[in-house]
Computed example of a mutant assay.
Amino acid sequence: MTMKWAIAAPFFDIDNIDTANWLEPFVPGDAHEFQLIPRQKPLPKWHDRKSKFTPIDDWLVYMRQAADALNSDADGVITVFPQVASAVGLQQKLRFSNKPVVAWLFNVGTCRSGLRQKLARASLSQVDHFVVHTRKEIELYSQWLGLPANRFEFLPYQVPEIPIEYGEERKTPFIASLGSAHRDFPTLFEAVKKLNIKTIVATGQGAVEGLMIPEQVELPFGISKEECLRLGQQARLNVVPLQPKEGVTAAGQVTLVEAMIMGRPLIVTNFYGAEDYIIHGETGWLVEPNSLESMTEAIDLLWHDDALRQKLGENARAYAKEHFSDPCAGRHLERILNEVAENRNTLANAKLQWAK
């Protein structure tokens, strides 16, 4: 029997829904069908956001999307990102819905106590399966939400194949550092200043506010995603410097996975689950948190070792294709949907037997 799933993701909107897709084309077999549920308004661009918190107006859009998913004729709901999962959970409470829910790419950023925790526990208690993207998040979210750990599963963050359209810039080589969340730019800036290496940092203005910017660093604010990927491909090194902060659950996965799938030699601070993605010395280079010495030594080593950079880049691309690709994630999604459907059937049969 075929099971139909509604997919509610913030990157589906009424303007792109006719051409949008996610992992559904990569789910093998014919046991599951899918229907995409759009937002009524496009998701704001990340560099246009004025707050790190989701505003009330955007929550109303999520609630409408959640209602549309539950009102559909689908047998279950797949959500992408925690806001959509929470909105679906609240709608379920209001209408006493019992549709199974799979929450994919569940990363709340910070596990805060108080009202936020109470709302999260209330809205997410009925989610059947959470997919998180670092192993540490299993324990963090299990405790934060008061749910059993077996409802959470670690799967690596996946990205679509990225075309390799640019070669390394050899006349004026540079380091690229992309992204904003919880970045340790002070340590990176000190390292490249000490080594006198040109570095291009594509980030939001808030991530470098108040910092002294050395002459070796360029900050092209507001550039497009395509421009970021170009910089990543042209750079001699990609660096993801991460700053440990209390309560933060994960950071940097998108940037490091994209660098790996593009086959770029990569240096990452060993925090926020970086070791779940990188095999040190084989698919990338891990450095100690808050260590100028460790960062400087790593950059100096890889900057001058062509053979090591080539090895890391080739290994990273091969590893990413095997573990971080859409087809790989599609196979995991099929397995999870099968397990959720089977568990629901088992529970329904048990209730039927008890009623008799």
Rank of each mutant, 00 (worst) to 15 (best):
N98S: 13
R236L: 15
V268A: 09
A316H: 03
G29A: 10
L286Q: 01
V61I: 15
G114Y: 03
E288W: 09
D184W: 01
Q126N: 07
T172H: 14
A348M: 10
D128P: 03
L302T: 05
V340M: 04
T249W: 02
A122G: 07
E293W: 07
T2I: 09
L286G: 00
A251H: 08
A66F: 03
A350F: 11
G89F: 06
P25A: 13
W285C: 13
R64N: 11
P156A: 13
V240S: 11
G284M: 02
G222I: 05
A149K: 15
G330V: 06
G114I: 04
L178D: 05
H32L: 11
V201Q: 10
T199I: 05
W59P: 03
D73R: 12
Y319P: 02
V127E: 04
L115D: 04
Q126G: 01
A8Y: 15
N345Y: 09
H129E: 12
E334L: 10
P244T: 05
I56F: 13
A181K: 09
N71L: 12
E342L: 14
F96K: 14
V287W: 01
Q91W: 05
Y141V: 02
I56G: 03
D13Q: 00
F154S: 06
K356T: 09
S113V: 08
C228L: 03
D58E: 15
S325C: 05
T134W: 00
C328T: 14
G284T: 00
S294L: 10
A355E: 12
E334V: 04
R317H: 12
S325P: 08
K198I: 01
Q143H: 12
A8G: 09
